[in-house]
């Protein structure tokens, strides 16, 4: 990861402390450069360019959105190359070595819920991508900033006034965006995989009472496969991996509106599962 943009590097340092070495000492997965292209735009409405392995897959973004663009670009890198893993469109957190998978579409509240769980002591495995090793069925951590959009930013600020939020980017392609920095424990344990134990399909519905309902396993299979980026690509490996997850987890749908209550429900579920004899 290289960049000449000092403001961007400062933000990167907050979210990935000590993880942006300037001197290559090992084999890298991606060679990324974030820089201001040399053109008239350098002075008038400056832009920033994302380069991956000397390619430019995207149009330049406004320079002030360098960090969100980097995060989205990194998503693109992973989604387009990490096909040795089953990629789930899901947030995932861990309680000890047991993972809770929260698949969902934009607006379902999965990122906000994941952030709230992490701020309440869960370990962040990943947001947006759940990376499953098909041969083992476990989830690999990839703790990165959790992007919150629009009203979710205030929701998290209200949930925890001391939430470690990065800068707010007021005008991105997703609206207002701010990232929750992963906690030190999650970062320190990013080499510690977790085994799926709960599969929860969250749905934020304004004003609704929190409701956790068991989900039929076949429906869960269908929905999890649907929420996998590369299910079709991996063929039988994905079929077996999704089946293995479904066999080993309790499946639920979860409608929620209040983060405090939502976290109470889910942590109670974890405690209940962990109680011997249940």
């Amino acid at each position: 990861m290289r960049s000449s943009d000092s403001a961007f590097l400062d933000t990167l340092g907050v979210f990935y402390p000590g993880r942006a070495p300037q001197t290559p000492t090992c084999v890298y997965d991606y060679d990324i450069r974030v820089y201001r292209p040399f053109s008239m735009r350098r002075w008038v409405r400056p832009q920033i360019q994302f380069e991956i392995d000397h390619l430019h897959p995207f149009e330049p973004h406004p320079a002030e959105n360098a960090f969100p663009m980097y995060e989205w670009g990194l998503n693109w890198c992973i989604a387009s190359s990490a096909h040795r893993y089953l990629m789930l469109h899901a947030g995932s957190v861990a309680f000890g070595d047991r993972a809770m998978i929260l698949p969902g579409t934009p607006g379902s509240g999965k990122s906000t819920l994941s952030a709230a769980l992490v701020l309440s002591g869960a370990r962040l495995l990943s947001d947006e991508f759940g990376l499953v090793r098909p041969e083992r069925g476990d989830l690999l951590p990839m703790p990165r900033g959790i992007p919150l959009k629009n009203a979710s930013i205030e929701a998290i600020r209200e949930f925890r006034t001391d939430a470690p939020l990065g800068p707010t980017y007021p005008k991105t392609r997703k609206g207002r965006v701010s990232h929750v920095r992963p906690d030190d424990t999650s970062l320190a344990q990013q080499d510690r995989p977790a085994v799926p134990r709960w599969l929860i399909f969250p749905k934020y519905v304004a004003g609704v009472a929190e409701t956790l309902e068991p989900l039929d396993k076949t429906d869960a299979f269908r929905q999890l496969a649907f929420n996998s980026f590369n299910y079709r690509l991996l063929g039988d490996a994905a079929f077996n991996a999704v089946g293995a997850i479904i066999r080993n987890v309790d499946c639920y749908t979860f409608r929620f509106s209040r983060l405090e209550r939502a976290v109470e429900h889910l942590t109670a579920l974890v405690a209940e599962t962990e109680t011997p004899g249940t």
């Binding site: 994302f50 897959p57 995207f58 663009m69 998503n75 989604a79 469109h89 649907f226 590369n230 690509l233």
Partner: peptide, 17 residues
């Protein structure tokens, strides 16, 4: 074959069933 938006923004299935 994957659902990352072509503009590089985060994975974004626009809608589902």
């Amino acid at each position: 074959l994957f659902t990352v938006n072509p503009d590089g923004s985060d994975p974004d299935p626009i809608n589902t069933s």
